[in-house]
Amino acid sequence: MQDIYQATKEALILLLGGDPGIWEIVGISFSVSLQAILYITPLSLLLAFLLAFGNFRGRRILISTFHTFLAIPAVVVGLTVYIFLSRNGPLGDLGLLFSQTAMVIGQMILAFPIVVAMSHSALQSSDRAIWETAKTLGASSPKAMFTVMYEARFGLFAAVIAAFSRIIAEVGCSMMVGGNILHHTRNIPTAIALETSKGEFAQGIALGLVLLFLALALNLLLSSARYRLEMA
């Protein structure tokens, strides 16, 4: 008990004292995960829209594929990206293994099906009258699409937040393709894993608190979005 108390106290000192090592790791986590979300969101939303409103062959199969990929284990994504980026892999010449770029790629693959599947659900359940009203008032199809997305914005926002929550806390893939290199690819989850295995709890607890706090903040955002959704 005494140890945990001591470690927590040290953790708070690290956090509040602005320990540069800790905040660097936090910075890497945010930079990688925000990039991943930023890159996949436009394409995911477009695809989700086509799946919800389009009428083409293979639509149903694509939808269930994305729902299946929701549960894909991070280590499997890590393994796949690793194989592609490793020196002898098809993309080995790029020399991207153990870089932040590799981590971004891994997290993009993890986030993509989440945003697509959840946005698809949000758009699928949105009122068809939105599209029809936009079209009948003379909107072009892209304009009508943006109108539908705007009306469903809280659901789409929830999809993006959910994907971000998953990838910022994800350890398996980042560990494998990033390599947990200090000052470079060490992010919050990989740092926690490492510190804990070394028996150094203070930094682990400090970073864990950051993640917990983030989870709390994102959940608040989500529930306010959901609240707006129900009010509409």
Binding site: I130, E132, T136, L137, G138, Y150
Partner: peptide, 26 residues
Amino acid sequence: MVYLHQTPYMFDTSVFNNVAYGLRAT
């Protein structure tokens, strides 16, 4: 033709913006 639904869908914005929609879209 402009079609009006049995229960019209109102865009989640002001009455002004709703009425302006068709003009802005074109």
